[in-house]
Amino acid sequence: MNHVKIKVMDRRTFLIGAGVSAATLAGLSTIASATPEEAAAFIAKITGGKKPTEGGMKLEMPEIAENGATVPVKVSADTPQTDKDYCKSITIIATKNPYPRLCAFHFTPRSGKAFASIRVRMATTQEVMAVAEMSDGSFRIARTTVKVTIGGCGG
């Protein structure tokens, strides 16, 4: 739509046109994607409303992922992983994928370390978070941002 056209259109036609193009733009993204708010709500569900503390764990992902279909993730929590003090689970959450949870890992003291490595799909450039549940009932969180060149969620 250019300025010349706008001038000849009456106000009503212009508004309808604008509405249609906005709808077209929204329709470009064919997959309904989760929002950062949904991701935050998902984290609140995991922690039961408790606020996780930043740090005490590591979430490693590449800064730039050319292929969103397979992006490596390494996650670990700083724990001695003994019977008294261990990390129970770590959940990986994407903020702009079709579904916020990517995967969850469950550890025991027998794991030796709270460490896991996996490969995930990223729909677009976004923030990824990892939430760890500790044996004392506390929660930790780590964040990283991945730039994605080609999305890997189909659609």
Partner: peptide, 27 residues
């Protein structure tokens, strides 16, 4: 499982890549 004891498990969603790779540790 290690000698019958579950020491690591994982729940996966559609966000896990095709031909899933997973690495983890055991004492």
């Amino acid at each position: 499982k290690y000698n019958g004891e579950v020491f690591f498990s994982s729940d996966w969603e559609g966000g896990v890549s095709a031909n899933p790779y997973c690495a983890f540790t055991c004492r």
